[in-house]
Nucleic acid binder design. Structure first.
Length: 292
DNA sequence: CAAGTGCCTTTATC
DNA sequence: AGATAAAGGCACT
């Protein structure tokens, strides 16, 4: 199936899938392969054309956020030279609408881990607990259900390289099964209410909750603050904070809750209702440019 | 090559 | 409130 993208609404599939918001997409040759719900999706972009298999056009539009007016969003967040530079370089990067359950577990895994390691953990987790699928002679695995992970032992989970996160994932999965929690209800809530609900799950702090809000629930004002965003903000936006705050936070590893909330609320207030987009462009910009 | 550092942090404890 | 430590293991230097 095919979709023709309009010139006024930019999209770049590679940026969108490479930027680190999703962990389970792989490029093989010309095509990107990813498992979404119970199917292997296959998609490629050629200029303004998107070609894909195993999904409806509506699904693709929703999953890749193609219904959003990205031109408008990018112009709204373009408050200064720094963010405009990031936007210019990665124009077309879009925030996905991932499955919230998969997103939640993925970001619990992502605490204190780099992206490469997160991918390894999730690959192992899906291989052990997911269902095998095949396409084009490649093997893929579905993301295991809450029930499946709730039944797994800590030892089994830990064998996927999850370390101390195994405990959090087990507890969160059990909690979701026990209460019959439905992630769909979070979409109807305000960003703040949904965040508070997410914070009740074990292993979910401010950063993980903000990632789930942004990358799966379409709460585009969410502004996750990780080490990279902390660095970007303190480097380029230091004048927006008291000098002693900048000194203090620069010279240590983690963030206290109140320090997190200060950077988070700066992001939301400064960049506005699409702050999450600013976050992802800055994140990707800083990561690509600090590697040289 | 060994040892140290860092990783899209959270939680428990003081 | 805020500081501190602990919690896999792996990639990178």
């Amino acid at each position: 199936m095919k979709i023709a993208l309009s010139t006024s609404n930019p999209f770049n599939l590679d940026f969108t899938l490479c930027c680190g918001q999703a962990f389970r997409w792989e490029k093989r040759g010309e095509w990107w392969y990813g498992v979404v719900s119970d199917k292997v999706l296959k998609i490629q972009q050629k200029g303004r054309g998107l070609e894909f298999e195993n999904a409806s056009a509506d699904f693709i539009k929703n999953y890749f956020g193609l219904n959003e007016d990205l031109t408008k969003i990018l112009s709204q967040i373009g408050k200064d030279e720094i963010i405009r530079k990031a936007v210019k370089e990665f124009k077309g990067l879009r925030i996905l609408r991932q499955d919230p359950w998969e997103c939640l577990i993925s970001y619990i895994c992502a605490t204190y881990k780099n992206i490469k390691a997160v991918k390894q953990m999730l690959t192992a987790l899906c291989r052990k607990f997911g269902d095998k699928l095949e396409l084009d002679s490649y093997s893929f695995y579905t993301f295991p259900s809450p029930e499946k992970l709730a039944k797994a032992t800590i030892v089994e989970l830990a064998s996927c390289g999850l370390g101390y996160r195994a405990e959090y994932i087990s507890k969160t999965a059990k909690e979701i099964c026990k209460t019959g929690f439905d992630f769909k209800c979070l979409r109807k809530l305000s960003c703040k209410e949904a965040r508070n609900k997410l914070l009740t799950f074990p292993g979910v702090g401010l950063k993980v909750a903000d990632c789930v809000l942004l990358f799966s629930l379409g709460k585009l004002e969410a502004f996750p603050v990780d080490v990279w965003i902390k660095r970007v903000i303190l480097k380029y936006y230091a004048t927006h904070f008291p000098q002693d705050f900048v000194n203090k936070v620069s010279n240590k590893k983690g963030l206290t809750k109140s320090e997190y909330e200060k950077i988070n609320s700066f992001g939301r207030n400064y960049f506005g209702e699409y702050a999450g987009y600013a976050q992802e462009y800055l994140y990707h910009y800083e990561r690509t440019h600090s590697l040289d």
